[in-house]
Amino acid sequence: MKKINLSKKWLLILIKWINKILINPLNSKKLNLINLKKNSYVKELKFYLPIKKKINIFYIRNLSKIIKKKNKNGEKFKIKIKKNKGILSGSIDLIIKKNNKYYLIDYKSNFLGKNINFYNKIYLKKIIIKEKYDLQYYIYSIALHRFLKRKKKYNFKKNFGGIYYLFLRGMNGKNYKNGIFFYRPKYSLIKKINNKFFKKPKI
């Protein structure tokens, strides 16, 4: 890791900001990052998904009812595929386990505005659609589900807790109303997306 030379002033600001992120509650049950036990999380989980056809984000959005109307142009979402292999690879920032449920966490550093009011649910939903993060979290959910299926007694409906997107610039260490986007997809939707766009195993 490269060393970064910071003045004492900026170092203190950075430490204070990181602490706010760590203590910030993610939900009403006061789930946060600072209280995670060492055996309750996995960082940077890499995954590989074999693709059988181009992924159409508008098809997925219609399935999930994120948007009501189909896009007539049938726009394709461009993804990076390993040469001649048809493999989609990626890395999930953090996976945590709490009360026998697994949660997917992804960090976002987007600048949405000069104060935390620009990081409320309305603004977060807009940036999710604009940047196509919804497609990202469906792919991540499929990857995590495939990974967890190796475990005995795992069941999506009982054990898949959901997805947290943490917009770091909007987290003030006090509440989960700003800077935190949460979504839990239905199993039927994950199954349809997996079986349509990705090769075996079917789920």
Rank of each mutant, 00 (worst) to 15 (best):
Y133A: 00
W17C: 00
D93L: 02
L11M: 12
N194Q: 10
N120D: 15
L94Y: 04
N178I: 03
L45I: 09
L49W: 09
N155W: 04
I142F: 03
S89V: 01
S141T: 15
K38M: 08
N73I: 06
Y176M: 10
K20Y: 02
G170R: 08
I128M: 15
L22H: 04
S40L: 08
I51A: 04
L31M: 04
D93T: 03
N62L: 15
F181M: 11
S109L: 09
F182M: 09
M1V: 04
R184T: 11
S91N: 11
I92H: 01
S141I: 03
N195Q: 11
D106K: 06
I18K: 11
L45K: 14
G86S: 07
P201I: 15
M1C: 02
L124F: 03
S64Q: 05
G74W: 03
G113E: 14
I163T: 14
K149Y: 13
L12C: 01
K126W: 00
I92G: 01
N99R: 13
Y41P: 02
I129N: 09
L12K: 14
K30W: 01
F147S: 06
I13H: 04
N19S: 08
I203E: 07
R184W: 07
I55K: 06
K83E: 13
K85C: 05
N24H: 10
N73G: 05
L31K: 02
K192H: 05
F147K: 15
N159W: 12
Y119K: 03
L31E: 13
Y103E: 12
D134L: 07
I122W: 03
I87M: 09
S141A: 14
N32E: 11
G162N: 13
G173E: 15
K78I: 06
